[in-house]
């Protein structure tokens, strides 16, 4: 059974005249790693907010269609129930962290579920461990780097043991090295069975990590398939999505030498060339 199922979703923000999402249909199987991309204002962020029920429950607005997560309808499920199934990570971790220590930050969610003390301690320990920030637990989130803060935000969600993680440009404010480590963490969590929905513009950093790539434009899904299919589709090049350089070079080469080349990484393209020349 699909872990996420979105049917005929149309949504317009309050006080907005035009819809942000138009007839969106989407399904994700448990354990999938889905990249969501598309130009600014295409509806990516709105889509993320709909997945954990922020839309329409907190935002209001005009909502049609349905969003089911783990068999629960977001419109009729209380926030604390949804929060145990879907975690949402935002672009700017500074805006979400508020506790005095990392440990308290991570404990905040489970405490609100009124879990037994030992259970809370265990979840916190485990979440910090998975994310690799156990050594930071006494620190104040304020004194951490952006990359570390983002990991705290992720650990805080993991302590809720969600089945789905939704990340809205989690690396936008990070330096490339921290960005890479957050993306690798996502990859690892996904291998452990968490379904991951990741919004990202910089396709060269993620296209080789994901199972599937979904492209939004003007509030609609306009492409959905394996990253190779999608990045090499005509539709996507028309959109002006920033295709990775390796994809651009492979396409150009394809047309020059009349051979279909569909590489995603510099490793793939380099080993093809070396193989041919050797």
């Amino acid at each position: 059974m699909a872990i996420i199922e979105v049917k005929g979703l149309c949504y317009t923000y309050p006080e907005s005249e035009s819809p942000s999402l138009i007839d969106v249909n989407f399904k994700a199987e448990p354990g999938e790693f889905v990249l969501v991309t598309g130009p600014s204002g295409c509806g990516k962020t709105t889509f993320c907010r709909a997945l954990n029920g922020l839309i329409p429950n907190s935002y209001g607005g005009d909502f049609k269609g349905e969003v089911m997560v783990d068999g629960l309808l977001t419109t009729s499920t209380p926030v604390y129930e949804l929060a145990q199934r879907v975690g949402l990570v935002f672009q700017n971790p500074e805006n979400e962290l508020f506790c005095t220590t990392v440990e308290r930050e991570v404990a905040f969610g489970p405490e609100n579920l009124a879990l037994p003390r030992e259970e809370i301690a265990m979840r916190v320990e485990e979440a910090l461990e998975i994310v690799g920030i156990s050594h930071l637990k006494e620190k104040s989130p304020e004194e951490l780097s952006g990359g570390e803060q983002q990991k705290v935000a992720i650990a805080a969600l993991l302590a809720m043991k969600p089945k789905v993680l939704v990340l809205d440009e989690p690396t936008a404010n990070l330096d490339p090295v921290s960005a890479k480590s957050v993306l690798e963490l996502m990859h690892r969590l996904n291998k452990n069975g968490v379904t991951v929905i990741l919004v990202e513009h910089r396709l060269e950093m993620v296209s080789h990590l994901v199972d599937r790539c979904v492209v939004f434009e003007g509030g609609r899904i306009v492409a959905d398939g394996s990253p190779r299919e999608v990045l090499y589709s005509d539709k996507v090049s028309e959109l002006g999505v920033g295709l990775p350089k390796v994809v651009q070079v492979s396409k150009r080469l394809s047309s020059l030498i009349g051979e279909p080349l569909r590489f995603l990484t510099s490793d793939e393209l380099a080993s093809y060339v070396r193989g041919r020349v050797a």
Partner: peptide
């Protein structure tokens, strides 16, 4: 610094 993808490709080739 993570190098530009084409620099990385150049080195690997």
């Amino acid at each position: 610094i993570l190098p530009p993808q084409l620099a990385d490709l150049s080195w690997k080739m």
